[in-house]
């Protein structure tokens, strides 16, 4: 008799996973970061406390903290090794970061949310 856990595990479906970008969590006291392209990665947007602060309009009244989520999207096919190179380059440029999160598409659908 299968347990509920066994039944749940059996429902796992195989999905095609493709690396398409990186979310970087940058700590800085110097305001909204600015980035040139780093290898095959281009900065798409930056959010602070979940609100998009670049590009486009940002209210001068908006409360911002020193922690920015910076989304970099790949401009061509990339591998995990490209992420390692990217992180190394970012650190060498002097950016202090708390975490990174690889962004994957699952069967062609984004497995990550957009900012408000």
């Amino acid at each position: 008799m299968p347990t509920c856990t066994d039944i749940a595990k059996a429902t796992k479906k195989k999905r095609e996973i493709k690396l398409v970008g990186i979310d970087m969590y940058i700590i800085t006291e110097k305001g909204i970061p600015k980035f040139d392209d780093i290898g095959p990665f281009k900065c798409e947007f930056i959010s602070n406390r979940g609100t998009k602060v670049w590009p486009g309009f940002v209210s001068p009244d908006l409360l911002m903290v020193n922690w920015y989520r910076c989304r970099f999207m790949a401009t061509k096919d990339v591998q995990d090794a490209d992420v390692n190179t990217f992180l190394d380059a970012l650190t060498k440029k002097g950016w202090w970061w708390s975490a990174s999160q690889k962004l994957w598409n699952y069967d062609g659908e984004a497995g990550f949310s957009k900012a408000y």
Partner: peptide
């Protein structure tokens, strides 16, 4: 509600 969600594996 900060809209930071990820599928961190499948």
């Amino acid at each position: 509600y900060a809209a930071i969600e990820h599928m961190v594996s499948d």
